[in-house]
Computed example of a mutant assay.
Amino acid sequence: MPTVIDVPPTDPRVAALLDAQEAELTALYDGDPTQSEPFDPRTLAGEGSVLLAVQHGPELIACGALRRWDAHTAEVKRMYTVPQARGQGRARRVLNALISRGRALGYARLVLETGDRQPDAIALYERAGFTRIPNFGYYAGIESSVCYELPLVDERTA
């Protein structure tokens, strides 16, 4: 049974997943390198950051991360599932685990970016309760980017 595990950003299996994701995004967005923010997995080794993966046997078949922005906000990064494992709830398991971990770390909200040519990702995030926000940071001004946030605390009780 595949399980969600913490993995270090130096794990070569993670590098393979991130390379596969980058190749897919490059093809999906016609080779446009601006669609994906330059990303160094080592940024996930810092305090308040998390890298999770779904392990099936010795292989990692899905991953996702939280990268700390500040004491109140983390960004969901590098959600990816290998093609042969899609449609089986793996991404949802990773996302749910990231949301739970974000709450445990005391974040008030999570933010993320995906692309307008990724309807499955958009549906996943919207089903999880994320709502559309203006594009932020690197993605401000990139028309194909779609940004979301998920409050982790109820403003009425915070």
Rank of each mutant, 00 (worst) to 15 (best):
V4Q: 04
V4D: 05
V4E: 05
D6Q: 09
D6M: 01
V7Q: 08
P8E: 11
P9I: 03
R13M: 06
V14P: 03
V14R: 05
Q21I: 00
L25H: 08
A27N: 07
A27S: 14
L28R: 15
D30G: 10
G31F: 06
P33S: 14
S36Q: 14
S36R: 14
E37H: 11
F39R: 07
F39T: 12
D40Q: 00
L44F: 04
A45R: 10
A45V: 03
G46C: 06
G46V: 04
G48I: 02
V50W: 11
Q55I: 00
P58T: 02
E59I: 00
E59M: 05
I61L: 05
A62N: 06
C63V: 03
L66G: 13
L66E: 14
R68L: 07
W69H: 07
W69G: 03
W69I: 06
H72F: 08
T73S: 12
K77F: 01
R78Q: 08
M79N: 07
T81A: 12
T81C: 04
T81P: 03
V82P: 01
Q84L: 11
Q84E: 15
R86S: 03
G87K: 03
G89D: 04
R92V: 04
R92N: 14
R93L: 13
R93V: 01
L95A: 01
I99D: 15
I99Q: 11
I99H: 12
S100T: 13
R101G: 03
R101L: 02
R103S: 01
A104P: 00
A104M: 05
Y107W: 03
R109D: 10
T114I: 10
R117I: 02
P119A: 05
P119C: 08
D120H: 11
L124C: 03
Y125M: 09
Y125R: 09
E126A: 06
R127K: 15
A128W: 06
A128M: 13
G129Q: 10
G129K: 07
F130I: 10
F130N: 13
R132S: 06
I133N: 08
I133L: 08
G137W: 12
G137N: 06
I142H: 15
S144F: 02
V146D: 06
C147Q: 12
C147N: 13
E149A: 11
L150S: 10
D154Q: 04
D154T: 03
E155Y: 00
A158Q: 11
